[in-house]
Design a binder for these strands. Structure first.
Lengths: 187, 187
DNA sequence: GTCTATACATTGATAGAC
DNA sequence: GTCTATCAATGTATAGAC
């Protein structure tokens, strides 16, 4: 079973390049050279660069949501939070890449409108999940949330996204351990 | 007194475009059209695009540091923190732009090495200042910091940078009010 | 499906007139 | 200082052979 189809390879490399260089920081030529094909072959699968971007973002969103939903709903809030933060930490330590959504959000004005909508969906889904867990933590008494859990969830997700960028900037995986303190210091 | 020299205009528009579209999301032609000159005139001031980027980052860094240092050192830690967070909030509400350093950090792999060094300097300077203020807060008893203030400072700055990106993504200035809660909830 | 060939616009950059 | 003119390289994209 070979999952290394051309289409798969294109998407893998394209996702990585967006995360490393931004949407405007790579070309079909870069992709073609990396894979060892011609640019016209990429156009066969993704006629326009926006088609490629759309496919990447959809796949990323679906996989990330699946990973979140794989966190056992029966767990306590603080364990869920640790698992969630660990997802970010491991994603970074394995790839040294920031979040795809954060990479695209930086170049926002240069992206098509439908991508912006998808990014909002990605951010919103994460914030919703986090808010739900924080609320559970308050109910369970394991988390001390002074204000609105919705706002706390926003701040927490922003801190996670920002920490990934900083960890890469300093090429310092150790910084990803700060994430735990950042997210869980209110316990 | 006319500060709207060509050089100034170039730098202003270029900084804005980096913050909106990323370093690879605009061209000398874009700049020339915006200002009403020819691309060769831009090359007169900034022979290479990297020269332009360097000048912008240096100016941004200097101005931001000056703004931080303008915060009265005699103030209490929590007032200093509020002033610092308010700098971010107002910067966003006036311009709807994210931090220049955060915009560049996203496209990191496509930037020259000396720019990476400057970004590290910018992040480090902010984290240092924050850590110092947090330590003051602990001494004064106005802040309850469970762990290392250095780590807390990193998380706080990451949260600020991330919140700016989210506020822009959702075109929601209200989110910048979350910053206060995010940064000061440990009071 | 992948290629060759090609089109056509854009990009960063330079030389030299004014 | 700003312009015209020009450049080679790169960018996205298409047509059609195999």
């Amino acid at each position: 079973m070979n999952t290394e189809t051309t289409r798969t390879q294109i998407m893998q490399h394209a996702q990585r390049l967006v995360q490393e260089r931004g949407y405007n920081g790579f070309s079909y030529r870069d992709l073609a050279t990396l894979i060892g094909i011609k640019t016209s072959s990429i156009h066969y699968y993704f006629p326009q660069k926006e088609d490629l971007l759309l496919a990447i973002v959809q796949q990323y969103h679906a996989r990330w949501l699946a990973a979140i939903q794989a966190i056992d709903t029966g767990l306590s809030a603080d364990v869920k939070l640790r698992a969630y933060v660990d997802m970010h930490r491991q994603a970074f330590c394995n790839t040294e890449r920031i979040c795809l959504a954060a990479a695209l959000a930086a170049d926002l004005a240069s992206l098509p409108a439908d991508i912006r909508k998808m990014l909002q969906g990605f951010y919103g889904a994460n914030e919703d999940w986090l808010a739900q867990v924080l609320e559970q933590g308050v109910r369970e008494g394991s988390l001390d949330m002074p204000g609105d859990v919705r706002i706390a969830a926003r701040s927490m997700f922003a801190a996670l996204q920002g920490s990934l960028a900083t960890a890469r900037l300093f090429n310092d995986s150790e910084r990803m351990n700060d994430l735990l303190q950042a997210a869980l210091s209110r316990q």
